[in-house]
Every structure is written in C-alpha cells, then in structure tokens.
C-alpha cells in the first residue's frame, strides 16, 4: 500500500507539473493558432480584396439580346438552355398578321449565284444541295434564254403537306411551309408530290457535323440538318422573325429579289432596299406565277425577262437538242 502511496505521490506531483506545463503549452498553442488564424484570415481577406479589385479579372465580353456589349466575369456565366419545345411551337405557329410574298425579277438575273451561296451557308448545305437554284431556261427554239431562280413556292394549297403521313411538314399562318426534321421519317412522299421539285433529300451525313454538335435544333433554320430527312427553302423564317430580309434576298447583287408582306401590299428589294406596292409591281410588269393551273396557289411571283440587263453568256439550253 505504502509502496503504492509513495509511488502515487510522485506520480501526482508529476501530474501537477504536467498540468502546469499543459496550461502554459495551451496558452502557447492558443497564441500560435490565434496568430495563424489571424494571419490566414488576413491573407484570405486580402486575396478576396485583390480578386475583387484586380483589373485583369477574367472577364468575358458578351453581346446582350438588345445588342449591347457588356463584360461579365467568366465564373459568373451560366449556360442557358435553348427551349426547343417553345422554339418548335412558335416555329409551327408563325408570325401573326403577315402573309409573306416573294417577287423575282427575271430581267435582272445574271446567274451571279450569290443567293445560292448565302442560302447554303445559312442552312449548312453542300454546293450541290439546293434550297434555291438558278435554272437556265428557254421555252422554245426561237425564244430567248434566261436565268430563273427557283425557291420553294410556299403554296397556299401545298400538295407536299397533304401527303405527309406524320405531320412533319406543315403550313404556318404567315404562309410559310416548313419541315420539322425531328418528325420527318424520310418517306419522301412530299418530294414526289411537289410539282416544282423544290425539295431535297439528305442522302449523306450533313455537311457540318462537328460544328453543329450539341446545337439545339431550330425548326426555322433546319439546322442541324439530319441525314435521312427532307429539307427545302424556308423563306428564312428565322430572319423574318427578326425583321430582316431572307438570306438570298439580301445577298443578291443585281436587285432580282423583292420580299414583303401581302397584307401590307408592299415588297422591299433586297439590293436597293426600295419598297414598292406589290399590286402595282405585279400589274405594271406583268407578274405571273409558276404553273398556277395546278391550283397550288404559290406565294412566289415572277416578273418576265423583258429588257434583260445582262447578256445570256452560255450556250442556249436547247440549241443542240434534237426533237
């Protein structure tokens, strides 16, 4: 017992010694930790301050919807998902209160092919895939040849829409006939039904695959294009929504195209930006439609190739034809 006690005492003394030691060390440690915390806090604060005020913070220039250039920090940018369902819905409805018409003046076409290039650029098509094409025309042996741009006629009585079994192609309230490539099953009934050969079929993978990866489908642009579906002229429905003239119309250097609203009785020339009364333009120049006898009621009008501005440089299309 004694032994035990005697051994216990020094033990106690050691413990008390240790206790004093620990208090000291506690204060020591506390001081150290406190200092470290203060230093760390100051460092973080100064870092934060620096981040806030440093001039070359990682900023990104962004163009807002109302066309203003603003700068925002890169880390605060959030991805906004395009609402495809809403886009498809408004694309199916069309623009209220309008009836789009196109007037093509054959006297002014010199086959510059700028319309075709602008169209193919916008809709990601190959040089041999046409939404609009300029044809070389000659009615008979003794009549003069001319160039004829031919887009989709956007008929008011569209045979292509009537034959579609899946409601993929449809007519909108503003007169445009569009295709929903997400619905199209590639049966090509519409291609066969169109008397103007306005439709094309994507036999190959689309031209732009890498660039369009992850891009949401825009029904008013038909981009990204889809293999195994039908595509055609869209009257640049996406541009009309912005109040701009179609791609082909604005690209023409020779004033061939006029585009406008039948409800406003006016068309605007894409080259000169001159606006005319539609009724007067058609009346004064003998405007006509393609194959009206089919009852398709096209929305594209042609002005005859009278007093052509340019020579027809190529060989006449039917000169060597044997009848």
């Amino acid at each position: 017992m004694n032994n035990k006690k005697s051994t216990a005492d020094p033990d106690n003394s050691i413990k008390s010694q240790e206790g004093a030691d620990s208090r000291r060390s506690f204060f020591k440690r506390f001081g150290l930790v406190g200092a470290a915390a203060a230093a760390g806090g100051a460092a973080i604060y100064s870092g934060y301050n620096y981040e806030e005020t440093k001039p070359n913070r990682d900023m990104v220039k962004v163009l807002t919807a109302d066309n203003k250039l603003v700068e925002v920090p890169r880390d605060q940018i959030k991805d906004v998902k395009v609402d495809v369902a809403r886009m498809t819905k408004q694309g199916r409805e069309g623009l209220a209160g309008h009836r789009w018409v196109m007037v093509i003046d054959l006297a002014k076409c010199r086959n510059a092919r700028k319309c075709i290039q602008a169209c193919q650029g916008a809709h990601h098509l190959r040089p041999y895939e046409y939404h609009i094409n300029t044809l070389t025309m000659q009615e008979s042996e003794n009549t003069a040849p001319y160039y004829m741009p031919k887009p989709c006629q956007h008929c008011d009585n569209p045979p292509c829409v009537a034959v579609c079994p899946v409601d993929a192609t449809f007519k909108r309230q503003d007169g445009i006939v569009l295709i929903d490539n997400e619905r199209c099953i590639g049966c090509r009934f519409c291609v066969a039904a169109c008397p103007y050969s306005a439709r094309m079929f994507h036999w190959e993978e689309p031209l732009v695959v890498e660039g369009d990866k992850g891009k949401e489908y825009n029904i008013e642009l038909n981009v990204p294009q889809k293999k195994g579906t039908v595509s055609k002229c869209l009257f640049s429905a996406d541009r009309l929504r912005e109040g701009k003239l179609p791609y082909c119309v604005s690209a023409c250097p020779n004033g061939v195209y006029s585009f406008g609203d039948e409800n406003q009785d006016s068309v605007t020339n894409g080259t000169t930006k001159e606006t005319h009364r539609l009724s007067e333009l058609l009346r004064d120049n003998g405007g006509y439609q393609l194959m009206p006898e089919l009852g398709t009621k096209p929305r594209v009008y042609y002005l005859p190739p009278k007093n052509r501005l340019f020579e027809f440089k190529e060989e006449s299309p039917i000169a060597n034809e044997k009848v």
């Binding site: 069309g94 209220a96 009836r99 008011d156 009585n157 569209p158 045979p159 829409v161 009537a162 409601d167 449809f170 007519k171 909108r172 309230q173 503003d174 007169g175 039948e262 409800n263 406003q264």
Partner: peptide, 17 residues
C-alpha cells in the same frame, strides 16, 4: 383597315387533323 385571317385557318386536305 385590313384584317386577313391566318392562312392555315380554313379546313383543307393539307391542314392539321
């Protein structure tokens, strides 16, 4: 004063169901 109904308003073979 001009009001013209939407072009897809009337009943037609090509129109929606």
């Amino acid at each position: 004063p001009t009001y013209r109904p939407p072009l897809n308003e009337h009943r037609a073979l090509w129109n929606v169901n």
